[in-house]
Design a binder for these strands. Structure first.
Lengths: 222, 222
DNA sequence: GCCTTCTTGACACTTGATGCCACTCAAGGC
DNA sequence: GCCTTGAGTGGCATCAAGTGTCAAGAAGGC
C-alpha cells in the first residue's frame, strides 16, 4: 500500500525555489487538496466521491490518482512528514536527556504545529476532527502511527545502546509516547481547540514518564 | 463503518444448541471463513478476489457480503470478541488489584487464546502474521484496538473512581496496555511462534507497570 | 523547426461493495 | 394438506475506487 511522496514540508513552509514545472505541480496539488478538504468537511468522507472532488478542482480523475494514492490519502498526507520530523527531533535531542524528556519534546513537534495561533491552527483542527471521526481515515492514521513507532523505536534503541529488536523497551516506549500523542489529539479535538495541546502533552507525559525512565541496562534482560 | 455481529465466541467454542437454520448459517460462515483464510494465507490479501473465495466456498458473492461487511472483515472478525472479553476480564478483576496487575491479566486473555497448544495456535499464528504484514488489515486491526482502548479506559475509570473524560490517565493506561499487546504480537509473529507470548506479555508489563501504578488520586489534577 | 521528456485527459477495465428482485425452504396457522 | 410468512439465498445491475493504456499538449535542449 505505497503512499506517494510526502509533501508535509511543502505544506508547512512552501519553498519558493524549484522549477516552474514543479510549482505547477504544486498548484494542482493544492487545488485538489483544497477542494477535497472543503467537500469532505462539509459532506463527510463517504458522502463525497472522487468525481465530485475532481470536478470542483477542474482536473480529471486520472490526475487525482497521480497526486494521491487513494481518497484517504488526501487527508492523511497532511501527516506524512510528521514521522520524519519526530524522528529527526529525537535524533537531535542531547544524548544526556532522559527518554521521557526527549520523547516529550519529540511529540511536541507535531503538537506545536497544530497549536500555533494562526489560520493554520483552524485548518489543522478541522482535519484532525475529520480524521478522528471517520473510521477509514482513523485507521489510516493509526497505520501511519505504527510506522512512526517503528522509526522512533529504532532511533531510541540507538540512543540507548540497545539492540533494536532484542529488547521490548524501545518499541513500548515509542508506543507509549504515541499513545500520549493520540490521547492529546482526542482531547484537543473534543474540546474544540480550547485546551492547549502543548499543556495536554506535558500532562500526558507526566503520567507515562515513570515507565519511560526505567531504562533497562544495555545487554541486560534478554 | 458497521461491523457485523461478532462470532469470535462461536469460533472459539461452537455451541451445539440453537435451531437448524442457525446451524446452517454457521456452516456457510465456517465454509466461507475456511476458504478465505486458506486462499489469503496462500496468495496474500490483494492476490485473492472475493470471486475466488466464493467460488471455493460454493456460494454467491452476494451471500459473502451478507456474512462479512468487507473482505477485510473475514480476517478481522477473528478478533471481534476479544474487546468484549478483555473488558469483561477487567471488570471481573478484584477491585483491590493494582492497575498493572489487572490490565496484565486482561491482556493475557487474548494472548492465552493464541498460545494454547492446540491446532488452534497454528491457525492463530497464520492469521496474526497475515494481519501484521498486510497494511489494510493491520489498519483495521488498529482501528479495532482503538475501540478496545475506549472500552478499557471507561472500565478502568469506573474501577478507580475517576471521571471517564476528566483525566488523561485511563485512556493512557489502556493505550499502554494495548501497546504492550501489540508489541507482544509482533514479537510472537516474528519469532514464528517459538517465543511464549504469555512470558512476553509479563516482560512487557514489567516495563510499563511503573507508569500504570502511578494512579492519580480521584478528583486530583484537573 | 525538431526532438525528448513530462504532464495531462479520455477511455476502458478490474474489483470491492450495494440494491433489487425472484426463488427456496422451513415453520406455523387454518 | 395448503397457504402464508419470513429468513436466507442467488443472479443481476449498478456504483465507486483504483489502474493501465494511449494520444495530445506544453517546456526545454539541440
Amino acid at each position: 500500500m505505497p503512499y506517494m511522496t510526502p509533501r508535509y514540508d511543502d505544506l508547512v513552509n512552501p519553498r519558493p525555489d524549484t522549477s516552474l514545472a514543479q510549482r505547477k505541480r504544486q498548484l494542482v496539488s493544492d487545488e485538489l487538496t483544497e477542494a477535497a478538504l472543503q467537500l469532505l468537511a462539509l459532506k463527510g468522507f463517504d458522502g463525497v466521491t472522487v468525481d465530485e472532488i475532481v470536478a470542483a478542482a477542474g482536473v480529471s480523475k486520472r490526475t487525482f490518482f497521480r497526486y494521491f494514492a487513494s481518497k484517504e490519502d488526501v487527508v492523511v498526507q497532511f501527516l506524512a512528514g510528521m514521522g520524519a520530523d519526530m524522528r529527526d527531533e529525537l535524533a537531535a535531542r542531547p544524548a544526556a536527556e532522559s527518554p521521557s524528556v526527549a520523547l516529550r519534546h519529540t511529540v511536541q513537534v507535531p503538537v506545536a504545529a497544530c497549536a500555533d495561533h494562526s489560520d493554520h491552527a483552524a485548518r489543522a483542527l478541522r482535519v484532525v476532527r475529520l480524521i478522528l471521526r471517520t473510521p477509514a481515515l482513523y485507521a489510516r492514521f493509526l497505520e501511519r502511527q505504527a510506522q512512526w513507532r517503528d522509526a522512533l523505536a529504532t532511533e531510541l534503541a540507538g540512543r540507548l545502546g540497545l539492540a533494536p529488536d532484542a529488547d521490548l523497551y524501545p518499541r513500548l516506549a515509542a508506543g507509549m509516547a504515541l499513545s500520549a500523542f493520540d490521547t492529546v489529539l482526542h482531547r484537543w479535538s473534543g474540546s474544540e481547540g480550547t485546551e492547549d495541546p502543548v499543556v495536554l502533552t506535558d500532562r500526558a507525559f507526566a503520567v507515562i514518564a515513570p515507565a519511560l525512565d526505567e531504562v533497562p541496562r544495555p545487554g541486560g534482560a534478554r
